[in-house]
Structure formats: structure tokens, C-alpha cells
Design a protein around this nucleic acid. Structure first.
Lengths: 336, 336
DNA sequence: TTGTAAGCGTTATCAA
DNA sequence: TTGATAACGCTTACAA
């Protein structure tokens, strides 16, 4: 456990010189610098992060809050953030904040107040009431991933546009009876769900099909989509196509269709949003978003902000490309 | 940003008295204590974790390393750890360490050397070569989740026993041609996979079926299990039952069977290990393990060790119960 | 029970 | 370019 004092001693300089040589800040002669560096590596010197933080006020640590980690999207975003921070030598402190839970309240008050991080990445956090103020009160830069597109510092795709595009794909195939599957009432993702529903509605309206708009609520999970689809598809007057709020729901719907003996895509087209890791296996047509990239971008933007606090970075919405696989086809004329 | 000095001033005491009153260590008169507490809350005082850590040597932070976070098991374990730490006021610093990656090397050397945590939880880390030494060198207590059962401080189920039990379930239903699906060669989970394969082999041998042992390699993912099962089941001499290394692979196999028109469980029994969140939806018979509990236990044990370093806690293997659903049935006599 | 003062391991200021 | 010395914000002997 040798400290900078030991290094200084061994290099025959003062602590301050050693510090300068090691951190690169301030002037040091080439000769002493190499001597200090040598001494440090010989001793296996590792600076105490606590002492550094105390003296400088920076932690080299980033906080990440998300409502949960056991969902494909969140896990992917987390990996993207992690990789980027790691490359820059930053640590990552994770905070779990399930909506409405008492733990969440503690995170927002107690844990955030400790300010153990230089900046915060909020993923899929839709702050309610006082949470907004609590986030502000942290007094550290914040970047969000998925959230209201109108706020600054938000990384994500344009959800309205994505689901509109997906709907148009189905319309282009001749479908008229298109159901939107997903987005129950009090969901985690309420915001995103709402935006995607909106895109679907807009596309339907534009096609003169306002009357055919059909919003089927479903839990936003694979089993949830399965169950909801079983109900929906058991009806005689079932739709010819389904737009799911995300791939997990879409895949649930495909599995439901198979079980009911409904051929996909011959008798039913299904399109999702995400390009989930299972999408290929189910030949799912979907709008691809890349959560790892979103996480990486969020991290980059945040680190950039830390370096140049008054250099506000404008974040462009990320692209969402239509990936056509084999879950969508032209509508069967007999079904019209 | 008021510090303890401000609190002390406001309460009309010295810094040390304020510190004692706030931390509860040492004696303080009831009266001054309440005064200090009042002053602290009026000022919204939050101790600087850096200063505390520097002075005490403890961080109130736990490190968690795992090879990845976007797999059901890991994500669940992480949630279990998180919840437990949160309840005790501990922070969680996450380290991603994909096997063999250069990032992993950095984590094990650079990041661990910073010792930003009081203890470490290693989930599914199968340390190689120098990594073992590097973990030791951290000089902090370590608890593992899943790993060699013979090492101390390891939380997990008895994998050999679990897969033996699963195999016996199939044997009890009259199956003789039972394939083990999973565990390719150079897999992340090599250790666990090997143990489960071993349990299967043991059960088969005990039943006098050594000759029928059939190990079919498959990537340990749902799509991987799907692909491997499609191959396996396309063969005329296909097995009447499959034991999958985990539920994700098992579910892949069920989906494959359905696509091939093979009825589960009538013509094919499938059993998994995990009780994954999708298991119920696929009526999968499985051996349930509870990763959240494992994470929580690991966290509890670690915190306990921090409090009583010389009180070695013995960790019992966690139970794995057979959950019989509808993916297994007595073998069809015509298939024998 | 309380206060003084010395750490904890760095960085930052200011002379030299 | 370098070196004393004072922060950083807290805990903890040691004295009172």
C-alpha cells in the first residue's frame, strides 16, 4: 500500500512534484518525470481514489439509474454504457429504481444525495412529481436514454416515427385491419408506449383508417404479448396484421399465432420494434434500434459534458431502420 | 454543501462531537445528540463519502463482476444483489468482464487495483491463470455465485445433483433415449455446463444406460438451443426426451419441436434447469433455481464477512426443486 | 461527555 | 521547474 509519499521518496523529489509528474498537470522536467514514473511502477503505486476525489472534487465514476436490468433493452444499454466508461477508465455505479417502489424513493433521495458520481445516466426513467426536482438537485450533469424527445440531453430513437414507419409497411402490403398490441395502462414505459401508439394512430389516420384503429392492451413482455395475442386472435374478426409495441410482444404474438394454427405471414403479418436478439430466429420484421449504441452515445455525451460543461451537445435522434424478414407479407385478398 | 463543521457550529458543539452524534459511535449526551441531529437535518447535511472513506478506510460500496448482464440468470442475480445492498445503504459498482476480452484484463488489473469497494461479488466468473492471483491481490473479501462448489464462499445450487434429478425424472417416465443438449466446447459457463453434463451422465450410468449417453453440443442461448434441436430432431432416430443445460436451451428445443410438428410432451419430453421467466408460458418442466435469492444471499454473506472478518460463514448449496409442468410425459411405448 | 489536534492520501497555491 | 504548506471533509486518539 505505498502512497505518493513513498513514490516521491524513492524518486528523490517532493510529493507535489511526484503528483505533477504522475497526473501530467503542471510542468516537470523530462528527467524527473521518468524517474517518478519508474518509482511508481516499481512500487506498484495506485492512487487512492478517495484521496483524489476529496482533493479534486471529481470521482471518475458515473451513476446509472434504470427501472430494472432484466429486460433486453436495459441490459443492452447497460452494456453499451459499461464498455464506453471502461475504455475511459470510469467506474459505473448502478442504481435500480423500479417505478413506485420505496427503494426507488431511497435511491432518489439518499443515494443520489451522496453524489458519488460526476454525472448520471438515466435510462427509461420517467420521473414523477418530486423526482424531477430530486434529479435537478443532484447538481451533476444528466443524460437520459429514452424519454421525452423534447427535453435536452436525451438519447433515443424517434418513437413516433418508428411506429409510423412500421404501420406504413403494413399498409403498403395492403393490410387494413391492423391492431396495435402493447402498452397497458400503468406501464413502466408509459411514455415510449404512448409515443409508439401515437405513431400508429397517425399512420392509420393518414390512410383514412381512423375507424379501424384497434389498440389492444398487453403487458410489455413476451408472455404478456402471447396471452394478449391468444385472446385477440381467437376472435373470428381478427386483424390481418399486428404492430407490436416491441419485439418481445411481437414474438409472443407469433408464438400465439402458431399455437392457434394461424400461419405467419400467410394469414397474419406481425411487425415489431427493437430487433431483439430473438428476432432473427422468429424471422420477425422489425424496426431496428441499437440500444448498445444508445448507451455508448449517452456515455460519450456525458463524459464530453464533464470536460466542457458549457459546450452543450446537441443529440440527434438515433436512426431506426426497417428490417424486413419473414413475418410480414401482402394481405391475403380473401381476408379483406 | 454544508459540511460537518457547519452542523457542529449550528449545534454549538465541536466537529468531533457532531461526528460522534451522527455516527452513533462513542458517547454523547442525549441532549446534544438531538441538537446535532436537528442541525444536520435543518442544513440537509450529507456526509462526503470520500472523506468518510479516506478517514475510515471503508467505502460502503460493493463491487460486482460478471461476464455479462444480458442473460436471464445474471440479470436476476444482479437484481438480488442490488436489492440487498440498497436496503443496507451500500452502493454497487458493476464490472463487466467478458471472458478473454482485453477489457476483462483491464478490469482485473487496473480497476480492481483501485479497491473502490469493501468487498467483491464474482458472478459466473471462472478465473483463469493469473486472474485467480489478481482476485486474491485485491485484498478484499470475495463471495462467488456459481463456481466450483469445492471452493469456499460460493453461492449456488448443486448442479450435478440438479441435472441428475432432472434426468431421473425422465428415466422415471420410462425414457431411455435421453439427449443432453447444451454446453459447447469453449463456453462462458464451462464449469456449470460440465457439472450438469456430469449429473446427466451419472444418472444414465446408474440406470445402466451408459451406452445411450448422447451429448449434443449447443450454444447456451435460446436461438442456439433452437438450432441445435432442429438438427437433432430432424433425425429419424431422435431421442424421446431432452435434458437441456438450462431453460433457454430447453425452450429453444420446444419451439424447434413445434415447428417440426413433433408434439410435446406426447412425442418428446423436454426438461430444463432454471425456471426461467418464460418457463411457465411454455409449460416447461424444470428444476427451479432462484438466482435473485442467490444474489441476495451472496450480498448478505459478504456484508456479514465485512462485519465479522474472522467469522467464516459456511454457505449451504441452495435447493433446486423439480417443477413439473407439461413438457414431460411417460414415454410413448411405440417409440421404445 | 466533550474538545483539540492529528491523521487519511491526494491536489493546489504560492513562493522560491 | 520544484518544494513547503494548506486545503479537501471526515474520524479518532488523546486530553480535559
Amino acid at each position: 500500500m505505498s502512497g505518493i509519499a513513498d513514490v516521491a521518496l524513492r524518486a528523490g523529489v517532493s510529493k507535489s512534484t511526484a503528483s505533477r509528474a504522475l497526473s501530467g498537470a503542471g510542468h516537470t522536467s523530462e528527467r524527473t518525470r521518468t524517474r517518478v514514473l519508474a518509482a511508481a511502477s516499481e512500487l506498484g503505486y495506485v492512487p487512492s481514489t478517495n484521496a483524489v476525489s476529496l482533493a479534486t472534487g471529481r470521482t471518475r465514476n458515473i451513476g446509472v439509474v434504470m427501472p430494472r436490468v432484466n429486460r433486453w433493452f436495459f441490459a443492452e444499454v447497460l452494456e453499451g454504457i459499461q464498455a464506453t466508461l471502461l475504455a475511459r477508465g470510469y467506474d459505473l455505479t448502478l442504481y435500480d429504481a423500479k417505478p413506485g417502489s420505496p427503494e426507488r424513493a431511497r435511491v432518489f433521495t439518499e443515494f443520489f444525495a451522496r453524489k458519488r458520481f460526476d454525472g448520471l445516466i438515466a435510462v427509461g426513467i420517467e420521473p414523477v412529481d418530486d423526482e424531477i426536482g430530486q434529479l435537478q438537485a443532484v447538481g451533476r450533469p444528466i443524460v437520459s436514454v429514452v424519454g421525452a424527445q423534447d427535453q435536452p440531453g436525451v438519447v433515443g430513437i424517434d418513437d413516433v416515427r418508428a411506429s409510423r414507419r412500421a404501420t406504413e409497411h403494413l399498409l403498403g402490403l395492403g393490410h387494413r385491419k391492423i391492431a396495435f398490441l402493447g402498452a397497458g395502462d400503468a406501464e413502466v414505459w408509459a411514455n415510449v408506449d404512448r409515443l409508439r401508439l401515437e405513431g400508429y394512430r397517425a399512420a392509420m389516420s393518414d390512410a383514412g383508417l381512423s375507424a379501424s384503429i384497434l389498440h389492444v392492451p398487453s403487458p410489455v413482455t413476451l408472455p404478456g404479448g402471447y396471452a394478449a395475442a391468444v385472446d385477440l386472435l381467437s376472435d373470428d374478426r381478427r386483424p390481418t396484421a399486428i404492430l407490436a409495441v416491441c419485439d418481445e410482444v411481437a414474438i409472443g404474438a407469433i408464438i400465439a399465432a402458431r399455437r392457434l394454427g394461424i400461419a405467419v405471414p400467410a394469414s397474419l403479418s406481425v411487425v415489431g420494434i427493437d430487433d431483439h436478439e430473438f428476432a432473427e430466429m422468429f424471422a420477425l420484421t422489425t424496426l431496428r434500434q441499437e440500444p448498445q449504441e444508445q448507451g455508448a452515445l449517452a456515455a460519450r455525451v456525458l463524459l464530453e459534458t464533464l470536460q466542457h460543461p458549457d459546450n452543450p451537445t446537441l443529440i440527434e435522434p438515433m436512426p431506426a431502420r426497417l428490417i424486413v424478414r419473414n413475418s410480414t407479407a401482402s394481405v391475403d385478398p380473401s381476408q379483406l
